[in-house]
Design a protein around this nucleic acid. Structure first.
Lengths: 343, 343
DNA sequence: CTGAAAGCGCTTACAG
DNA sequence: CTGAAAGCGCTTACAG
């Protein structure tokens, strides 16, 4: 085994194997043009030298870095963590690395990280975009403009922020159906007054999840009762306390997401109301923790792990076979009924 | 504004600005050699052309990709999510992108992703390594061998798996101190029988956290009571049920981590034991959720967000000033006392 | 199937 | 302070 101070290149491999560097390059790309015998020879030489493929060099010539950019609005929320993780692992299996960034809902941070990823030559983007504040609309769309200019295949997932789904196809769970099913379930088990809690007012996701809720109530001629707010545990906790005091007639709650629902679980516990028998609670997202909460939490399961894997497949097929995904894909959701909704 | 079908290069910029491409390159690197006037001229040309820096090309010549590899054993655990996120955001601010991978505790996956990151030319690694199974020791060390061969600066964080801390410096919270303080706290509030629950037997982290517990008990001549197991909510939940039934004399529990502790919270709730008044529970890690659980969870706070930022600073200083970190760094932990330990 | 040559977009000495 | 030239490690036609 030869030793060298610098990293060996395909030229070193070619020399030890006694072929030209073109042949080595072909082997690297699994080209069928090279005889099996030669291929083995080259593989041996690579192993002996400790050769490592240099993707920067390859990318410079052929512009396919094998790098995917993943931009997430809130990576600390388990829903997005589960998505990011399943996506990253699926990409890894297919030989793609993931460059990731959390934007924490800041359009400005989003613009920065997207710019950095373009510099790194990512082959595609998968973005769960930050919403723009009313006066930051420019910042929110700037990254999409930059991506468009660079001509990089890009999917919007989970949230649709840029309306141009012909260029930036969207895929997400069928939130409206989830809201409808969950509300219907609580009504069917005898709920008289169903509230909708959490989710910032006016945002598309809030509207979609709420739309299903409103439709289900309208179908049975009941009046909606909506408390919008941040999608956090603390907001859920506080709202549970407030509802107990000010609106004791509310006997069922559809939460904007599981975080809010988990907060309500602890809020109602403090307030002395039993979740399940006294008040029904249903979450939204279907994070793993639902099954381990007390009481166990009913939730609209978006199948996020499967969703992440599906997105990986869709993007790679776009990249490798030029089959662009449809402008909009909605994946089915499923209500998982547990103790919190009075099973 | 000129339009072109391919991405503009520094040559295009040089031509529009009326300088040579070397000058453009110097501006790109913020070299002080270029006159402010010329600099402005070039910046204008870049803006007009929509120039985007090509890091693959730069990296090919100078081997500094501005890419950091982050390898995490369990990215779905909020403790690691908080770490990864704070690290990524700190790196981003300093102009570095993060390429990330979850290994899910599989040494084989770890070997694969580390190899991929080396191919992408990462400038440094930050690894919270997977433990090797007894018979997979080779696979667990293989990635470290590959990194050593490639000569890439690498830190082990949170877990020390490769003993060669001279090459792979380690940084992590002072787990032993945390165990000691938490156990002392429960004894001080009157606990008679303190159990240690969770953490796989024989693993270094388990041993460290347990060591503090054992020391604190030994100091007051009490017998330890240890239930090792997976560090999950379900294990905590089940163990709470079992302890209630089989060992009702246990009136305090130090948990291996917050996941186990949160599981015990719901387990004791099911069993009808009031956490706080009837049985003290203290977690470990200090994830955000502790403050929002019911009851609120006391925990040994490892300050993971600050830790992530510190690691970012350490690694960048290693990269930019060649100041290698000390072989082993232990950061202080702090016990946060909340309702679960009978405040 | 294999080899010789050009070129991807930068950076890096080296002159001036 | 700025310019001309070489080269980083690959891939890609093009011959043979």
């Amino acid at each position: 085994m030869k030793r060298m101070d610098r990293r060996p290149t395909i030229i070193d491999v070619a020399n030890t194997a006694g072929v030209s560097k073109s042949t080595v390059s072909l082997v690297l790309q699994n080209s069928p043009l090279v005889r099996e015998e030669t291929r083995a020879l080259i593989r041996d030489a690579m192993a002996a030298l400790g050769y490592v493929y240099n993707r920067s060099a390859a990318n410079l010539r052929s512009a396919n870095a094998g790098l995917i950019g993943l931009v997430i609005n809130d990576l600390r929320n388990p829903f997005f963590t589960e998505f990011a993780t399943s996506l990253q692992m699926a990409l890894s299996v297919r030989g793609y690395a993931t460059i990731i960034a959390n934007t924490d809902e800041h359009p400005r941070v989003q613009a920065t990280v997207v710019g950095a990823m373009i510099e790194h030559g990512v082959s595609a983007f998968i973005i769960s975009p930050a919403y723009s504040d009313t006066n930051a609309a420019f910042e929110a769309t700037a990254p999409f403009e930059a991506i468009k200019r660079a001509g990089i295949p890009t999917m919007q997932v989970l949230r649709k922020v840029d309306p141009r789904t012909d260029i930036f196809p969207f895929a997400g769970p069928d939130y409206a159906a989830g809201g409808r099913i969950a509300t219907g379930h609580m009504l069917a088990t005898g709920a008289q007054r169903v509230a909708f809690v959490g989710g910032l007012d006016g945002r598309p996701i809030t509207q979609e999840r709420m739309a299903g809720y409103l439709a289900a109530l309208a179908a049975v001629d009941k009046t909606p009762f909506v408390v919008t707010g941040r999608a956090t545990r603390s907001f859920g906790h506080e709202t549970a306390l407030r509802l107990t005091k000010e609106h004791p007639d509310v006997d069922a709650v559809l939460c904007f997401n599981d975080q809010v629902a988990l907060g309500m679980l602890s809020g109602f516990a403090v307030a002395g109301r039993r979740v399940g028998p006294d008040v029904r609670v249903v979450g939204f997202d279907g994070i793993e923790e639902c099954a381990e909460a007390f009481p166990t939490l009913s939730s609209v399961d978006c199948g996020i792990t499967t969703f992440g894997q599906a997105i990986a497949a869709t993007v790679l097929s776009w990249l490798e076979n030029q089959t662009a995904p449809p402008p909009e894909t909605r994946t089915p959701v499923e209500l998982i009924i547990r103790d919190s909704s009075g099973r």
